[in-house]
Write a protein that binds this DNA or RNA. Sequence first.
DNA 1: GTCTATATGTGGATAGAC
DNA 2: GTCTATCCACATATAGAC
Lengths: 199, 199
Amino acid sequence: MSVIPIRDRKAERRAGTRSEILAAAWEIAREDGLAEVSLRAIGARVGMRAQSLYSYFDSKHAIYDAMFGEGNEELLARMEAADAAGGTPEQAFRRGTHVFVDFAVEDPTRSQMLFVRTLPGFVPSAEAYAPAVRTLDLTTAGLERLGVTDPALVDIWTALLSGLIQQQFANDPGGDRWTRHVDEVIDMFLAHAKRRKSR
Amino acid sequence: MSVIPIRDRKAERRAGTRSEILAAAWEIAREDGLAEVSLRAIGARVGMRAQSLYSYFDSKHAIYDAMFGEGNEELLARMEAADAAGGTPEQAFRRGTHVFVDFAVEDPTRSQMLFVRTLPGFVPSAEAYAPAVRTLDLTTAGLERLGVTDPALVDIWTALLSGLIQQQFANDPGGDRWTRHVDEVIDMFLAHAKRRKSR
DNA sequence: GTCTATATGTGGATAGAC
DNA sequence: GTCTATCCACATATAGAC
């Protein structure tokens, strides 16, 4: 007859090692690029043989998937916090936009994983993707509160934002040549939406 | 004493084979993805062993570089043709924009190579990059004729365009959910530039 | 849970015969 | 110029001992 322990030390240890493995994977990705993340490299960093990682993850893609999910959850958490901070709809929208851009710019590797998705053969699972859907919902809800409901305008808005971020990464990594125009781009977009409505 | 031939048949043959190799590489890239382009795969397609390709290109990167150069030259040729077609500055600008967007959308693989640049370790040579610089010059010249000279606006414009194209590829490949808004985005941008100038 | 050993596959590149 | 043979490095993944 087994005694049920207050804490499941074994499970805790396991979860801890899983976190370590993911942290190592992020380190490698940031230092050497996403393509350089290999089981060997991860193993070397956590002090294990590559093969032993299979005790924690079913495959390399499972590691990618966990990274993808982690990143999206972090973004969602920040977007929800920004959303809950109050103010006028426009203030909230501007704040949310800045939170998003800051998140994207602060970790190019993470952005590449979440937004560009260049990993050959990797398709995120539905669970890992779920927070991304919620984040987009927050954005469309924010636009709706500003009276922007036309799907065409929502698409244009996502294009504006992703364009700024993409150009920033591609042509001025680490700088702010494009992202410093966020507020001007918001102005431009809102003026357009307003003008369009009054027609 | 050697006779100088009218035509250099040997050089012509060599150039022909080089073209064949590049064509095969493009085919593989379009069918299976840019990452699947390997010397073995190219060799199989042109009826050679992979090793024999070294008689035509110094390395795999040299093949990438030639592809990159080809793509940029094709784009530049189209942009120059659009530029030479006359009309008002605004007509020319709109036409050039459509030519660019069409070019980007018609071959996602080529766009990935030219604009996203996800190939690990590949850095284009200065020669291969030169036409890209000229293309950008054409764009800024077109904006200048419209009275748009502020570098900030030029950057915003490039972000708008790349954002539309990126979203198109990422979320509606093969469709036109984003690119159909090109003219509206041009309107929005030009209105913003005008309003900004009148301040 | 971690190891050694191994299977199996990919890739780029070089040497030398013909 | 093309071939065979070979090297080398790297990858994911499995089997089985401890």
